[in-house]
Simulated assay, not measured.
Amino acid sequence: MLQCVVQEHPKLWDEILGQAEFAYNSMTNRSTGRSPFSIVYTKNPNHTVDLAVLPKCNSKPAAEFTAQFSTMLEEVRAKLLDSNAKYKENADKTKKERSFKPGDLVMIRVKRERFPPGTYSKLSRRKIGPYAVLKQINPNAYVVDLPKHYNTSSTFNIDDLAAYHPPDGAGTSLSSSDSDSPVDGGE
């Protein structure tokens, strides 16, 4: 958004930041159906055009204001719940249930934050393995027979594991001597 606002004058970004923030907070959010200003301050802010004609001031009892504000918050809450349900429904359409049994071979997706500084390279392989699954901690966490030279925990989230399929279709088995990882998760 800031890039669109500054256009040919990128060095003026700090002068335009306030305008960009105001514009963002004034825009209606797709999930809530309201702008951040209207949620926090109960109304949209006055723009320059609004200030040219002063709005009529009607005094309303505090109870009516509180009821309107509570109703608005309930509407926002309901819209957020609807949006979250739609997002979950769309995400669940592509989600596949996966699970591994002890002894299954898996490839591990490598993430930089799991390794000590200086040991991870951008050009390194993205997946390492195959390694055997030692045990399932819960539906999302597995202990893998990871060699100690990786110097990281051997417990992985299921999102970081992929079933290993040998390239030639032949069966593959690893002995426990290929790895020296403890069964308890290496924590």
Rank of each mutant, 00 (worst) to 15 (best):
A170S: 15
R30K: 15
A91C: 00
K60S: 04
E64S: 03
H149P: 06
G185C: 10
S179D: 05
T28Y: 10
L2E: 06
Y41S: 09
V76A: 07
Q19P: 00
K122A: 05
Y164D: 07
M72N: 04
H47K: 09
P117Q: 02
S31D: 14
A62K: 07
Q68T: 03
K86F: 09
Y150P: 01
A91N: 11
K88A: 13
E21H: 14
H165C: 06
V144H: 07
E15V: 11
K60P: 00
G18P: 08
I16E: 08
K79D: 09
E97H: 12
Y41T: 05
Y24N: 11
V106N: 00
V110Y: 02
S124M: 14
M107S: 04
V110P: 00
A20H: 05
T155C: 07
K96F: 05
H149K: 14
P130G: 09
L17W: 14
V143K: 03
G118Y: 03
S154V: 03
E74Y: 04
E97W: 09
F100D: 00
T119R: 13
S35A: 13
Y131E: 01
S38A: 06
F69I: 06
K95A: 13
T48M: 08
K127H: 12
M27K: 14
S177L: 13
W13S: 07
A20L: 04
S38P: 02
P117I: 07
L134K: 13
L161T: 02
S70A: 12
F115H: 08
K43M: 08
M72K: 10
V40G: 06
E113I: 06
P182H: 12
R112W: 02
D14F: 13
T155A: 08
L17D: 11
I137V: 15
P182N: 13
Y41F: 09
K56I: 01
R34D: 05
L123T: 15
Y150F: 15
K127N: 12
L80M: 11
T152F: 07
V6T: 05
L123G: 06
H47A: 08
C57Q: 01
P139T: 04
A141Y: 06
A52T: 04
P61H: 03
C4S: 06
G103M: 05
A162V: 08
P61Q: 07
D92V: 01
V76D: 03
T119E: 12
N157M: 14
A91S: 10
A78I: 02
M107N: 07
T42P: 05
Q136S: 12
D178R: 14
F100C: 02
L105I: 00
T48N: 12
W13E: 02
M107I: 04
M27L: 13
L12D: 12
G18T: 12
P139I: 03
F22N: 10
T172A: 14
K96T: 11
F37I: 01
S99M: 04
S35C: 08
S38C: 03
P45V: 04
V76W: 03
Q7F: 02
V76Q: 05
S124I: 07
S173V: 14
S175D: 15
S38D: 07
A85F: 00
L17P: 10
T28W: 09
G129R: 10
T172K: 15
T152N: 01
P166L: 13
E15D: 15
K95I: 05
E74M: 08
D160I: 07
G171E: 15
P116V: 02
Q3E: 11
S173K: 15
K111G: 01
Q19I: 09
S176P: 09
S179Q: 07
T152D: 01
S124R: 13
